[in-house]
């Protein structure tokens, strides 16, 4: 099976600092993969490389058989990678519904002229976008808050809205950057169920960064461990839990 995402010898330098070095991972279609590591290990940098926020200093990133290194973020999203952010980046002054509607952007086909004169596909497509947005919101139990301003939502709901918004872009690969950050155990448990469910429902491939080990070990099929910009371990949750390198990285001391 061809991997959906494959990075080969990716290096990212910030001036003299090697944020990510010789980063090689592969993700097969339909997999649920975890990326873990101590703070500052380069996990979010890896996400930023996959989504075009940063350009790799060297190496290639292949998605769906094409090299996407060097593409702009919007081009990568249009090819099928969507993400959430570690520090929530909602359109905070807009309504919950508008947040989701915006993400349908690249799937809306009517032109500027059709919008200005309200002819052609405008009404049909707008109705479709609104209906699909409500459908997504109801999946994430946000439908009753559709008209609420996004910044007024409770923290957990804002995280769910970010996932709903990312799904509206209709990705093949979903990148979740610490989806459970700031959630209580009950919310985290619900989130786990939801991640698994959306993966099956939307036939997604998911890569997630998370510090909550109960979540990572509970749902990820394979895990990559990053430390100081390098992958130090890779394997199933059981293999990772028993890997001396990983234990050293997390707990310190001699391995």
């Amino acid at each position: 099976m061809e991997p959906l995402l494959k990075s080969t010898h990716v290096v990212e330098m910030f001036g003299g600092l090697k944020a990510v070095s010789d980063f090689n991972i592969y993700i097969n279609p339909g997999e649920l993969i975890g990326l873990i590591g101590p703070n500052g290990a380069g996990k979010t940098t890896a996400f930023n490389l996959f989504t075009g926020v940063y350009q790799p200093t060297s190496g290639t990133i292949e998605f769906d058989g094409q090299n996407i290194a060097g593409l702009k973020p919007y081009e990568i999203t249009q090819r099928g990678i969507a993400r959430t952010f570690q520090n929530i980046r909602l359109f905070s002054e807009l309504s919950v519904l508008d947040n989701v509607k915006i993400a349908f952007h690249s799937h809306v086909k009517y032109s500027v002229a059709e919008a200005v004169f309200r002819v052609g596909r405008y009404f049909d497509e707008e109705a479709l976008v609104t209906a699909e947005s409500h459908r997504l919101l109801s999946i994430f139990k946000l439908d009753d808050k559709a008209e609420e301003t996004a910044k007024n939502l409770p923290y957990g709901a804002q995280r769910r809205l970010e996932i709903a918004r990312a799904l509206a872009a209709k990705p093949k690969l979903l990148l979740l950057d610490e989806p459970a950050a700031g959630m209580n155990p009950q919310e985290t448990h619900e989130l786990m169920e939801m991640i698994r469910w959306i993966r099956d429902q939307f036939s997604l491939t998911i890569l997630l960064i998370e510090h909550d080990m109960s979540l990572v070990m509970g749902i990820c099929e394979r895990i990559y461990v990053l430390e100081y910009g390098e992958i130090i371990a890779h394997g199933t949750p059981e293999q990772i839990q028993n890997n001396p390198e990983v234990i050293r990285a997390y707990l310190g001391g001699e391995a």
Binding site: T51, P73, F85, R89, F91, E93, I102
Partner: peptide, 29 residues
């Protein structure tokens, strides 16, 4: 009015609200 109430107008508003998130949603900022 019609422009801002369309997907194209929403793209503009998204840029105002958060340019990085707008780009991550597939909008050519």
């Amino acid at each position: 009015k019609n422009f801002v109430n369309s997907s194209h107008g929403r793209a503009c508003i998204a840029i105002r609200e958060n340019e990085i998130a707008a780009a991550a949603m597939g909008i050519n900022t």
